[in-house]
Simulated assay, not measured.
Amino acid sequence: MRKIHVIGIGAGDPEQLTLQAVRALRGTDVFFILDKGEVKSDLTQLRRDMLDAHIPEGTYRVVEARDPERDRSAGGSAYSPAVGDWRSARAGIYERLIAEELGEDQTGAFLVWGDPALYDSTLGILQEVLDKGAVDFEYDVVPGISSVSALVARHRTGLNRVARPVQITTGRRLAEGFPEDVDDVVVMLDAHQTFRQYADQDIEIYWGAYIGTPDEILASGPIAEAAPRIERLRAEARERKGWIMDTYLLRRRDARERKEQ
């Protein structure tokens, strides 16, 4: 039976590959990579650089396919259906790649940024392919260092505080209000810099873009002070590269911390 590795490759630094990930890379015959176009070609090149660094040349193949476009203008009640349509389009591509490019006794792999279990669609899409029943395979998952872990490491801070919860959410959900009963919130997939709406509150922000890559940018401080700087850095980076991936931690200070300061 065909086998698939879903390999978490970290937030961008090639040295974030785990020993388990390297072992899975070396046991793979065919790597499937979805090309996101010329603007994001450096993401594809980073994957290829990781393969060149850890696998002998000539022992594997790379098969690329164009990633389907997602309707990013869809909002409100149309958002979830738009994401569902995009995932189904991806499932069709995955099904074709596995059926046509992977032999019955071979192993393929998808290289996933960060950790495959955190805000990534690969596992759900592979299960959708299996449920359709047109192609059969088994798969396993190799965890990776997420952008969340890399972010707090680069800022030399913890993800949570003693005996307190932490919540990971999206910019879309943060726009609906700061989560109740949580003072430490990690925000991903925020294209609209939603943190700005909390500039009047006593909240620290730890922000990072392109974490783990040579283009990494970091900024931190009270939102009121840091927000203008982050907006400028973000705009300059997006203009320079044509795309941006960023993550941030919001940390609400309590009365005791304010008093101690």
Rank of each mutant, 00 (worst) to 15 (best):
Gly133His: 10
Thr107Phe: 12
Ala153Val: 06
Arg47Lys: 15
Pro214Trp: 11
Arg161Asp: 11
Ile145Gln: 03
Arg238His: 13
Glu100Phe: 05
Lys40Glu: 15
Ile98Asp: 03
Gly114Cys: 12
Ile230Ala: 03
Ala235Phe: 00
Arg96Phe: 02
Ala209Gly: 15
Ile93Trp: 09
Ser147Tyr: 06
Pro143Cys: 09
Arg238Asn: 14
Gln16Tyr: 13
Leu233His: 11
Tyr210Ala: 09
Gly144Arg: 03
Arg253Met: 13
Ile230Arg: 03
Lys259Val: 14
Asp246Gln: 07
Thr28Met: 11
Asp202Phe: 05
Val182Asp: 03
Met245Thr: 10
Leu97Lys: 02
Glu225Phe: 01
Thr213Met: 07
Val6Lys: 03
Thr122Pro: 01
Asp42Tyr: 00
Leu102Pro: 01
Pro14Gln: 13
Trp243Leu: 08
Ala237Glu: 10
Tyr248Gly: 02
Glu225Cys: 00
Val62Gln: 13
Trp113Phe: 10
Ile230Lys: 05
Ile33Pro: 01
Ala74Arg: 09
Arg172Gln: 11
Phe32His: 04
Ile9Gly: 02
Asp120Ser: 14
Asp35Cys: 04
Met50Asn: 12
Ala235Trp: 00
Gly58His: 12
Phe137Cys: 06
Val30Cys: 12
Thr169Ile: 15
Val142Asn: 05
Ile125Lys: 02
Gly177Trp: 10
Val83Asp: 05
Val182Phe: 05
Glu176Tyr: 00
Arg154Ser: 15
Gln16Asp: 15
Val112Ser: 02
Arg164Val: 01
Thr170Arg: 08
Arg23Thr: 09
Leu25Ser: 04
Phe32Ile: 04
Pro228Thr: 09
His54Arg: 14
Ala150Val: 08
Ile125His: 04
Leu102Glu: 07
Val30Met: 09
Tyr79Gln: 10
Gly144Val: 05
Gly92Trp: 06
Leu174Gly: 02
Asp140Cys: 12
Phe195Gln: 02
